[in-house]
């Protein structure tokens, strides 16, 4: 399911699952509704917009990610409700300068080198958040 999610994201589409029982949206996809556990889910296209809830500039990176540091990981609340993890498209100095919580972002994908355990052995597709306006 994650492969389809990332392939779509690469093409600019953020895919979620809408629950036919409770109406909640789950993203990224999961085998059950993140709200109620139902398996009656239908694929929906999400707006790809959200707001930053938290973020951190990572200075000490794990093995395989050293060349990417410093990088900023953010938690974003999507318009449809779910929270997702990705990278902030902003240099680390700017990210440290002002409080970015509450800023509106749009989601897109960047292709990056794969890492030792990642299932796709050719690349890894990383969700990125671009601050709007």
């Amino acid at each position: 399911m994650f492969a389809e999610f990332f392939e779509n994201l690469k093409d600019g589409r953020l895919i979620g699952l809408k629950c036919k029982d409770c109406g909640a949206v789950t993203c990224p996809p999961k085998n059950t509704c993140n709200q109620c556990g139902s398996r009656k889910l239908e694929k929906v296209l999400l707006s790809g917009k959200g707001i930053i809830k938290s973020y951190t500039v990572t200075y000490i990176a794990p093995m395989g990610y050293e060349k990417e540091a410093p990088y900023t990981v953010a938690l974003v609340e999507l318009e449809e409700g779910p929270w997702i993890v990705g990278r902030l498209d902003l240099d680390s100095q700017s990210a440290e300068k002002e409080d970015l919580v509450g800023k509106r972002v749009s989601v897109y994908a960047k292709e990056m080198p794969t890492e030792m355990f990642y299932p796709d052995k050719s690349k890894r597709i990383v969700p990125y958040f671009k601050i709007e306006g």
Partner: peptide, 29 residues
């Protein structure tokens, strides 16, 4: 650090390079 990071979601959190200090940094904010 990579070994500790095996305890985050291996797909959706690891692609972004989320580490354990990172998890608690997010929590602090």
């Amino acid at each position: 650090t990579r070994a500790l990071a095996t305890a985050v979601d291996a797909i959706y959190e690891m692609v972004a390079g989320l580490t354990f200090p990172g998890v608690f940094a997010l929590a602090a904010r």
